[in-house]
């Protein structure tokens, strides 16, 4: 219900024209598919697992010119990403309340899926007329991320007590869906081919506005908490994006 209301609100904003802009030869609407990909995502995965994956997001966007140099867009996005964790210890922050050494040996695949709905104002700068040319986009996205297909995490917990080495444990991740709001700034250039098709490319920066994301945490029956600071990683992986987009102008 919450999602539906947000989507309806965003669409209402977009459809509500404030004036009669020229658009591109009278065409003021663009429906497009956008692929955002993150080259830096590779680095993180690589650091953890030496696995090459791209942090890609698929979006459907609807844009409408509301003034000659302004357009309003609503974006529906989804992403599915995985981080393979195996072989090498991850850089995991450990909250250790007790005096013992811990080695975490994660393995398997983290897979998290996200849905985003956002609204965005695009300002076509440098003499361009919306929806063509160079633009700066400012917007907000409401994100919801869930975690699935999480394999088990192997944690070797070696602690000593009276010279005795204790056992290692397997833990399961407790991962609730998280929601958070991001503000995004975008810069891109849109071209129109054959008066019908659009091709768009650019870069995007996201900033997490409300930090309500939950950290992954792993609960050990022995009441020892290991906090895997996934928040930080997610922030980084979603901070910069390059994107390309194909659309239809009408």
């Amino acid at each position: 219900m919450k999602y539906t209301a947000t989507i309806v609100l965003c669409l209402a904003c977009v459809f509500c024209s404030f004036s009669q802009p020229s658009g591109y030869i009278g065409k003021t609407r663009v429906a497009s598919y956008r692929l955002s990909f993150l080259p830096t995502g590779y680095g993180l995965n690589h650091r953890i697992s030496k696995l090459i994956t791209f942090n890609s997001t698929h979006s459907l966007s609807f844009e409408k010119a509301i003034k000659n140099n302004l357009s309003l867009a609503v974006n529906l996005s989804a992403f599915s990403n995985k981080i393979c964790t195996s072989h090498e210890p991850a850089n995991i922050h450990v909250i250790a309340n007790y005096d013992y050494a811990t080695t975490i040996q994660p393995w398997g695949v983290f897979k998290y899926r996200g849905k985003m709905v956002g609204v965005e104002l695009k300002s076509y700068v440098g003499g361009w007329i919306a929806p063509l040319g160079i633009y700066l986009g400012y917007g907000f996205s409401w994100n919801r991320i869930s975690f699935k297909d999480v394999d088990k995490l192997e944690i070797t917990d070696n602690y000593y007590s009276d010279g005795i080495s204790y056992l290692q444990y397997d833990y399961e991740i407790v991962a609730d869906p998280v929601s958070y709001l991001t503000g995004n700034i975008k810069m891109g250039k849109k071209s129109i081919i054959s008066d019908k098709y659009t091709f768009d490319y650019g870069i995007e920066v996201n900033l997490v506005l409300n930090n309500q994301m939950k950290d992954y945490y792993y609960e050990k029956p022995g009441k020892v908490y290991f906090v895997y600071n996934e928040t930080k990683e997610r922030r980084i992986t979603k901070l910069y994006n390059a994107f390309i987009s194909f659309g239809y102008v009408f």
């Binding site: 020229s22 591109y24 030869i25 009278g26 000659n68 361009w128 007329i129 063509l132 040319g133 071209s191 129109i192 081919i193 008066d195």
Partner: peptide
Amino acid sequence: DVLRSFIYDSLN
């Protein structure tokens, strides 16, 4: 596309 966009806007 640039030229068409501009001329349409001017005529508009």
